[in-house]
């Protein structure tokens, strides 16, 4: 009584569905709904989060991410060019930098620039400067590797054609090679922005005033002030998705566009 391949596939699908259903029911039965209702999904008490979650939380997350990205993009481009340089010292510096900042937790960088460096040099930096530098330095390490791959993906003939027209090396890079490299790395670069958006939450290790709170810190603050348990953090999490999901869709659009033009 052998089954055909199609019958076997159908049975296997039913079995998978059944397992999933049983697991779901088990979870629903095991959860303490009463506690969850008061301390996780307690949306009745989160009214006071608005509109400040827009005015400080969301706004600051966007501002911190943007500043970090600008520094990261400039630093990343510089490092990528250094890494492709024919001058060995530049390559070593770039490689050292990239390996170091990709290898340590971003949190340590925030602590170093939030407390260590200001202490060492006796300076006072405001939060925006610290975020810009910390996030930017970590981002440039990642972006550098992305851009390096993009620069190397531009065919060598492009540089040769540009140089043959009398363009100096820097001019050929700026006018011909780098614009093409950016087009190639647009999808992975958008993903870097998503990572940065989430890393901006690490600013919580610094002492912040309420107007400097970004989404995560704003949510944590709500935990202690609203008496709705973890609910405010859940709301903050949803706001991250509001930023990151459109970025994801954008990255996918860039990807399909470059796949189309490659023909």
């Amino acid at each position: 009584m052998a089954m055909t391949a199609r019958q076997r596939a159908r049975v296997s699908l039913y079995v998978q569905g059944a397992i999933f259903l049983v697991a779901l029911v088990a979870i629903i039965l095991a959860v303490d709904w009463k506690t969850i209702g008061t301390s996780v999904f307690n949306f009745g008490k989160i009214g006071p989060m608005f509109p400040d979650i827009f005015l400080s939380g969301l706004k600051n997350t966007l501002v911190y991410t943007f500043l970090g990205f600008i520094v990261g993009l400039s630093g990343g481009l510089l490092l990528a060019l250094m890494k492709l340089s024919s001058f060995p010292l530049y390559r070593w510096i770039a490689t050292g930098y990239i390996e170091f900042f990709r290898g340590i937790p971003a949190l340590l960088v925030f602590i170093a620039f939030g407390y260590g460096v200001p202490l060492a040099f006796g300076v006072q930096w405001n939060v925006t400067i610290v975020v810009m530098i910390s996030l930017g330095m970590v981002a440039s390490a990642y972006i550098a590797e992305t851009l390096r791959a993009g620069l190397q993906a531009v065919p060598k003939g492009q540089l040769e054609a540009a140089r043959s027209l009398g363009m100096p090396q820097w001019r050929a890079m700026v006018t011909i090679v780098i614009p093409q490299a950016f087009k190639i790395v647009l999808p992975p670069l958008t993903n870097e922005v998503i990572l940065l958006t989430k890393d901006s939450s690490l600013i919580y290790v610094l002492g912040l005033t309420a107007s400097q709170y970004e989404l995560t810190k704003f949510g944590r603050d709500g935990i202690s002030s609203l008496g709705a348990g973890l609910t405010p953090l859940l709301v903050a999490g949803a706001f991250y998705l509001v930023i990151t999901i459109p970025l994801s869709l954008l990255a996918r659009k860039f990807e399909s566009r470059s796949a189309r033009t490659k023909r």
Partner: peptide, 20 residues
């Protein structure tokens, strides 16, 4: 080199037009 290359046009097997 750059000044000299202005006087010398080059045409490649693979065209190498700037695609952007």
């Amino acid at each position: 080199i750059d000044k000299m290359r202005r006087k010398v046009g080059m045409v490649f097997q693979q065209f190498n037009l700037f695609p952007h």
